[in-house]
Design a protein around this nucleic acid. Structure first.
Lengths: 364, 364
DNA sequence: ATGAAAGCGCTAACAC
DNA sequence: GTGTTAGCGCTTTCAT
């Protein structure tokens, strides 16, 4: 917290609207009108407008963000609060969100929050209206209480993959339960009877019916009994998936023949552990991932997974925020998107189209 | 750009320092003094201090970011401008940066900029001093001219993996040339003579001596002639790496026996293409990656790569910015960090320690 | 030890 | 058509 010389020369040397006004020989108000495009509204003469634009260009003028935000009570920035940056899942989500946001005049930024353990509240500028709205992904970032407080202070909030903790907060999610069911059901249909599920280790248990519920439903429907020793939690990384899989393989006679992994990242770890142990996939052991991110098309073997509409997720999150900004009643408080099973090689079964053709198609 | 109801209720409903002052029966100035810790300096009585703190807590007061930034001429936010979010490389860099920044009282945010093609300049708030400093990674985001303009306006700028385009801009990089040399040299030492290099397709060619230079140096040193048909450019994705590798395999008699890939991501694509074509790695074809990200430990086969000190990179970038903030003369304008070869399975050669033990060690 | 007042740079309402 | 004015919420002298 060393706070020595503030001396951020950014504004010190930056020209202000007054500078531009002086150069153009008009008042600062005119600068604002011209540069914000409100000049077209039968107000400013073409001649003045051109002079202003020229002056602004000459000085390299850009409006000061803080002043503008303070005055307008809006920043035009939406921020994503993500657990970490290392899951490409969110890359797809954010990219789509960015495109959607841009169309409404908003920019998108990202804050990786898991890095600061339990310090969501430390991000005081979140509350200080540094952003017009925030989209929170992952229940690890913050507590439901913190979100409710944000909403109470009037910050627009949308949560991803989690139930809305407050009537003022919309949520956008994929149908995790259905995904869990489809993954497990696929393995059951292929003849597996002892099916493991490796899930993420959470500090605060989620409120949402998720993969695990779908897993249980599929088992039940097939008349298989739920075996708690087949459900493991692990760190949400490749290494975590690998370690958990090794634990499963150490189960000896009770060892499962298949695993439904929390996400593709952990599934990659599983494939690795199986290879290290000398098991062939899918012959000796089947693996299903979750998410549908790119890596699954490039593993050996390629990964059967549950694909999410990630672009749609990002787009909807932005639209939900926009409706919140405009204080329009949201047509829906909880948006639920469908998932779909993508059969590749890691479970066997399924039409084994030549990998090459398949890859080409998906690369497009 | 629909700009209907502004109506960001964030501040509308948020308590201000005046509200807190009224409740505590003091002036707004006192609120500021207390909440910014300057009360300890023999100024505010304990009794008043407690009353202020209680009042602030009761109202759930958080200082308005815009107002505070405007007044203080600093935002306490540093932002990373990254090409995309889907390379875990930057996840490691940013995480370390975040830790370092926090110690100096700064928060870190990220802007994925490649999404908006050529629209770096569209991010007007970058110039508007919305952030105290920015760290720009990847030469695809913006032109050197844009960076120079930013610096000229007094915004602190640090560039990653690229030469400093201006005397006011520090750069922090790893030694890409040395990495290219080490990768290529490793393959040469293993007996390869026709070695391909797949690099990123760039719109604006970089200024930096990079992988390709190291590749050439290693070839030259070994008396091998540079063959332009063995140097391909491709999209910086797994699919891009895969496609490029297929092109290499289509070279027939002139086909290389090894490839040095631009990064680990593209190397994963290469491994996939080789598998699809029925080539064994490393027996029929060797692959070296670049970056040292986690995935390389989990591919089949695991990936020999050039490991970067990613945490150091992030930490140094922050420190460079801090010196810029403080207008201290930077002890160095261009920071260059060493890389190291990590031998795994994808090239053969090297002490083949059991994969399991190796993974464990690195997981730590 | 605390309050009063000015002002950061901008924009929106209202004059002219 | 364009200028004047006020004020967003905060911090920071300067008075007291």
């Amino acid at each position: 917290m060393a706070r020595r010389g503030p001396t951020n020369a950014a504004q010190a040397s930056a020209p202000t609207s007054v500078d531009v006004a002086r150069l153009a020989g008009v008042s600062p108000a005119t600068i604002s009108l011209v540069l914000n495009g409100r000049a077209s509204k039968v107000r400013i003469s073409d001649e003045t407008r051109d002079r202003v634009i020229a002056a602004a260009a000459q000085l390299g003028y850009t409006p000061n963000h803080a002043a503008r935000s303070l005055r307008q009570r809006r920043t035009n920035i939406i921020t994503f609060v993500l657990p970490t940056l290392d899951n490409p899942y969110f890359s797809d989500v954010v990219r789509a969100a960015q495109t959607a946001a841009q169309q409404h005049g908003y920019a998108v930024s990202v804050i990786p929050a898991k890095t600061m353990p339990g310090e969501f509240h430390a991000l005081s500028f979140l509350q200080g209206a540094a952003f017009d709205g925030i989209i929170v992904a992952g229940r690890e970032n913050c507590t439901a209480a913190e979100l409710r407080q944000l909403a109470a202070r009037g910050v627009a909030v949308v949560v991803l993959q989690e139930h809305s903790p407050d009537s003022a907060i919309q949520s956008v999610s994929v149908d995790l339960e259905a995904g869990g069911y489809m993954a497990t059901r696929h393995l059951i249909d292929l003849g597996h009877r002892r099916i493991a599920h490796v899930t993420e280790k959470l500090h605060e248990p989620g409120t949402r019916r998720d993969r695990l519920d779908g897993y249980c439903r599929a088992l039940e429907e097939a008349g298989l009994t739920f075996d708690p020793s087949l459900v493991l939690t692990a760190e949400n990384t490749m290494a975590g998936g690998s370690n958990a899989t090794e634990q499963l393989l150490d189960l000896g006679a009770l060892r499962p023949t298949a695993a439904f992994m929390y996400n593709d990242q952990m599934a990659v770890g599983a494939l690795h552990a199986l290879r290290v142990r000398g098991l062939r996939v899918p012959d000796d052991f089947a693996v299903v991932g979750f998410d549908g991110v790119a890596i699954g098309q490039f593993t050996a073997p390629t990964l059967t997974t549950i694909d999410h509409p990630r672009e749609e997720l990002g787009r909807l999150a932005i639209e939900a925020l926009i409706t919140a900004f405009e204080k329009r009643p949201a047509d829906m408080r909880e948006h639920l998107l469908p998932v779909k099973l993508v059969v590749r090689e890691s479970c066997g079964g399924g039409k084994t189209s030549p990998p090459k053709a398949r890859r080409r198609a998906q690369a497009k």
